[in-house]
Design a protein around this nucleic acid. Structure first.
Lengths: 235, 235
DNA sequence: CTGATTCGAGACTGGCAAGTACCGTATATG
DNA sequence: CATATACGGTACTTGCCAGTCTCGAATCAG
């Protein structure tokens, strides 16, 4: 994990709360963990807060984002956020890292019998929208990456790598059934589509739509693998 | 050009300077242009200031950059900067736009007789370093792009498009001498290398070195164009 | 040489946001 | 049902930085 210089010893809340105002009872010098009494922290809200953070991140970017925005969107108090994450940076890092969850499962991947069929079958409105949002989040976090190099891996693992992994699997299957050469540089090829989509969203601000993905499949991937590109269908 | 909401009518300095303190002489209500007397503005320093801005941008990003940093690096006063650009955003925009200058000239491009030879000849230490810095600058500006969509075009035109243009020219020549098919989707293919380099620098924080560029040339471009990839040379 | 202006340097101001403290209320534990 | 704690709000503190202003020195026009 990437280490951010925590302003204080994390884990324990930095926020003043009743525990710290009142609980001077024991002479214990080290203010150890919370006693077992009283109300417990409601961790079911964590995902909602993280999700709110991602939303804000996606449409204002890291530097434009404020903790108040996140709190408001999550209908939570600002102090609640600081009880769980010691700083804005930690919160964002956690939010991005959690995106690694709910990814494609291998069994749900298309299996049409041809590589092109599989690749085209991956172009679904839901998939495109999901990718759009993730790239938007990535854009919001780019500036932060230079400050914390470890974050680079987290972002890549959460956003781009899953896509590339799908492509690799589809190409490997194609190799196994002899559709494409065993010499093909699959690792590089699998990164093309995610990379170009990222560039298109981050810098060009143009949509990553069906047409664009098709132009990569038919203009780059299939030719590079020595596969025939079907003639465009007449309308 | 992208329009930023100028805090005031630009061109004329927003900074209070002697001209404005003293020159209430004429009854002219419109505070028109500077009179022809006195010291003239030293425009030879503009490029130095812009260059300083790009340096700071490259290693702190837009939001991390302060006007004081730029002024210090350029050994200029902060007021001097505000005399020339009405805001930080204008300064940065101008700096990025000025990168469009000093680009490759068409006649200096390699012409080895084969596409691969030309592409490989483009991999020079100087070229790689230059690209590295530009991508660093791009990373610093990404967050700003979402706020000013017009900036997207400026960044693309200044940083990525020149590279793509070179690739297009080299591929067009290859087409003309019959080395590659006339059907090849040159526009898309020319964007691959710049896009992947951008992704590699911005997100992966890995170097765009000779090895990486070669893997794109030999793993993607040449196969996609139906050209043979030379076997790796034994050491 | 004189006056208008720019320059670099740095003090000053105003606003914004991270992080903290406090409050009244809600809730789990015993 | 009593206590200790977390909760949503909100007011507060602090530090940073864009943008302005001031000043003494330099520079150019006439």
């Amino acid at each position: 994990m990437t280490q951010i210089d925590a302003p204080r010893a994390s884990i324990r809340p930095t926020v003043d709360d009743t525990a710290y105002r009142t609980a001077q009872h024991a002479g214990a010098q080290a203010p150890e963990g919370p006693s077992k009494l009283g109300r417990k922290r409601d961790h079911t809200r964590d995902p909602e807060i993280l999700e709110a953070a991602l939303d804000v991140l996606a449409d204002t970017g890291y530097d434009g984002m404020t903790i108040d925005m996140v709190a408001a969107r999550a209908k939570a108090g600002k102090a609640t956020l600081y009880r769980r994450w010691p700083s804005k940076a930690h919160l964002v890092l956690d939010a991005v890292a959690c995106m690694k969850q709910n990814q494609f499962d291998v069994d749900g991947l298309p299996d049409t019998g041809t590589l092109r069929g599989d690749l085209v079958a991956m172009i679904k409105p839901h998939t495109l929208e999901d990718a759009e949002r993730k790239l938007q989040i990535m854009a919001g976090v780019v500036s932060m990456i230079s400050r914390d190099p470890g974050l680079a891996e987290v972002v890549n693992a959460a956003i781009i790598e899953p896509r590339a992994a799908v492509n690799r699997i589809l190409m490997q299957r194609a190799q196994e059934r002899g559709e494409i050469s065993a010499d093909a540089d699959i690792d590089t090829l699998a990164m093309i589509s995610p990379s170009m989509a990222a560039y298109r969203t981050l810098i060009l601000k143009k949509p990553v739509d069906r047409e664009f993905v098709l132009s990569i499949i038919d203009g780059v991937l299939l030719p590079a693998l020595g596969l025939a590109v079907p003639a465009p269908q007449p309308a």
